[in-house]
Every structure is written in C-alpha cells, then in structure tokens.
Write a protein that binds this DNA or RNA. Structure first.
Lengths: 216, 216
DNA sequence: GCAAGATGAGTGAATGGTCACTCACTATCT
DNA sequence: AGATAGTGAGTGACCATTCACTCATCTTGC
C-alpha cells in the first residue's frame, strides 16, 4: 500500500476497499480479478497500481484492515473488569453480529489461512494473532489469580483452545463450507437460534475453565 | 472420476494421486497446474482427462480420498468400548501422527473450506462431515447414558465443539498459517511437545464433558 | 498577473505469459 | 478390424501488470 492511497478522498478509498474485499471474498485470492475490482470501484487499473504494489499487496492490506475492524470491536468488549464468562458471552454475541454484517471480511481471513508463502504468512500471522493471544492469556491469568479460573492449566494453551472456538464459530457463520458443517453437526435451523448456541458454548467454556471446588 | 481410473494399474493410480495431492496442497486449487501434475505422475495430460472430467473433478476426488483415509484411521480408534476420554486421547495421537505423515491431505481439506460454489460445497460437506458428526454424537450420548458425561448439554452441539478442537489441531500441525498461529498462542517449541499438548487438550475436554458430581 | 514549464495523479489499451482443455493421431489390445 | 487406451502439441481464453499518454494544478520568472 503506497502512501498515496492514504491521501486520496475517503469516499474513493472506501469504494476501492469495498470492491476489493467483496471480490477477494467472493472468488478467492487467485480467481479475484484486478480489472473487475477497478471497474467495481470506478477507478482505473492504473490508479489501483499506484495505490498498491501488486495483487498480493492489495489482498494483504484488505486482510489486515478486516482484522483491525474485528480487533477494535473485541477490544471494546474486553475493557471493563467483568468476569471471564461475561466477557466470553459478549465476545460470542459480537462474533455472531460481525460475522453476518461483515461476512466478506471473515471469508478473507479464511482465504488467508490457505496461503503458503512463508514470507507472507509469518508476518501476517504475527500481526493478526499476537494481540488476541496476549489479550486472552492475560485475561485468563488474571481470573486465575482471582481464583475464578482453575490453576492447573497452561494459560496459553487454554487461550489457544478458546480462540479456536471463536474462530470456528466465525467461519461457521460466514463461510459456506463451515456453514454446512455447522448445520450437519447440529441442526439445519441452528442459524435461527443464536441464543441457544451461545448458551451451549458458554456451558462448554464455563466447565472447561471453572475451578472445580469453588472457594467457600 | 471415470471408471477407467479404477481399472488402471494400482501403481500408476497412486502415482497420479500422489502428484495431484501434493500439487493441490502445495499451490492451492487455482494455482495448481494440471500439466505439472501429469508430468510429476509421468502420465500424459490427455490420459489425466480420460480419468477425470476436469480440474474440479480431480480436486474433489483427491479431497474425498484424503478424508476417507483419515476416517478409516478414526474408525479404528472408535471401535472398542473404552471411556470417551481414552478415545479422545487416542484420536489426538492419531491426529498428531496423521497430520505430519499426510500433511498434504490436511491442507487439501483446508483448501476445500474456501470453495464457494454451493453445488460443490454442499455435497462435499455432507459426505465428509456426516460420519464424524454421527460418530461423536452417538459416543457422547452413550457416555451420557452411562453417567460419565453430564446430562445438561446438547449432544450435537458438544460433538461440534469437540470436532472443532480436532480440526484446529490438524490444521495447526499441517497448514502454514495455522502453524504460526499455534506457535504464537502457545510457544515456539510447541511442536516438540506432543504429549504436553495432548495433556492440556485432555484437561480442557475432560472438564467440559465430565459430570459435575460423580456418581457414588 | 500570466505564460512556460514542472509535477504527479489518473487512464486503459496493449503485452506477455499462463493454463485448462481438446483432438487428431498412435499403440495395443481382443 | 474394431475397440480401447494413451499421447502431447496446439488453441483460445484469461488476466496481472505496464507504459505512453492526458490533464489539472502548482511553481517560477518576468
């Protein structure tokens, strides 16, 4: 992404981002067509190449943007000092809303996971995963010290397992294959029962994290 | 896949499958090159098109094959009537071994999840996910009736959550992005500590499924 | 105030490369 | 001889990227 892209009018910028995100999410990275993106955004291909070095640069910039958006929503939830389970519930609700409203961004993320080039994958993963890894780990540690969460666990492993649940739910709401899978495993009408899903996931998470013999 | 492919010599067939699986897993569906696959397998492109209708057919056949192989390993573990946790442990070990030995097959599966065409995705998902969904659900139900697993849960939702853990571990061992993510969340040397991973995952699963006040 | 030049954003047709798929042909059976 | 299997050069479509150009705006010297 060149600095020029940061200087063009807001409206044009979001037109381009919307076009790119929807094309990449709809066709996948390889099949996405730069010329289509330019057309959809009502911008010349030449301009697009003034804003981004190449197709990959455009793709990665969009993925990064998408993860920023989700991260900021999560950060908002994580503020305040409620119990871990209250926060998990809020995160789950955020996931349900965000996955539906910004389906394309989640699909982009899934698309990213199939990329192989280590020069791309490593920095992108570090960028996108480190914040959540730290966030969950410190939350769990904090709750552990408060005696709410059991002490006999590897905090980072459990943070990983928790984030796995979040990821699979996001994909379940946003990506076609994972959607089908969700329906097959549970029920066809699972997407009309958001509260039920949250209820069950909470039961699962609660039991996994809770201290066995609660103090007093 | 034409019936001719079933009639050619075993050795040639596996040469083709190996070449196709490694190409699709290494480059992704779109970038995979049919001509390369033919070369690698020491077969003419023409022949390849006598065995498979088109690129997509070849891809789907390979994905299906890969999932069959894993399924048969899982089925073996699921025989016998041990406790759910013993089985989960065995499944986790199978995942660790299989994800490393057959990395390409797991990658293929991840590649499948980014496909969008509903005409492809729906039957493929049904084919691949239904058996595990039924397997886990019936196991959990059985353990519930035996009083080992808590009764206050939606069996199918918990089967889903359990399979999520399995999937994310598979991807964590086999796919570049998920590998990085695993390292970021836990530790760089996590891939040298298979027993530790199993231990922690079991702690998580055990607590999630276990009856709260054990009988007797 | 203004002409002459400089700057750089914006354009889209053209290029060069790639690749799925075909088909006319050959080889090998029965 | 007819059927069946195998071949691989060739075709046509597609698409990322480039580049020669336009045009509006700014700068400078008078």
């Amino acid at each position: 992404m060149t600095e020029l892209f940061g200087r063009i009018p807001e409206e044009k910028r979001s037109r381009i981002m919307e076009a790119a995100i929807s094309e990449f999410a709809g066709c996948g990275y390889e099949s996405a067509n730069i010329n289509h993106i330019a057309q959809k955004a009502r911008v010349s291909v030449g301009s697009l190449y003034k804003y981004f070095d190449n197709k990959q640069d455009l793709f990665l910039s969009m993925v990064q943007f998408g993860s920023q958006v989700l991260k900021s929503k999560f950060d908002e939830v994580m503020q305040g000092d409620e119990d871990i389970l209250v926060k998990v519930e809020k995160l789950l609700r955020t996931i349900q809303r965000h996955s539906r409203e910004q389906r394309s961004m989640i699909r982009l993320y899934n698309e990213m996971t199939t990329q192989c080039d280590p020069l791309i994958v490593k920095p992108a993963a570090t960028d996108m995963e480190t914040p959540s890894a730290e966030l969950y780990s410190s939350l769990i540690l904090q709750m552990q010290q408060a005696g709410v969460v059991r002490g006999d666990i590897d905090v980072r492993m459990f943070a990983f397992l928790l984030d796995n649940i979040f990821m699979m739910l996001q994909f379940g709401y946003a990506c076609d294959y994972y959607r089908e899978r969700f329906k097959i495993f549970v029920r066809d009408d699972i997407f009309q029962n958001d509260d039920y899903v949250i209820d069950q996931v909470l039961k699962f998470v609660k039991a996994a994290f809770e201290r066995r013999e609660p103090v007093e």
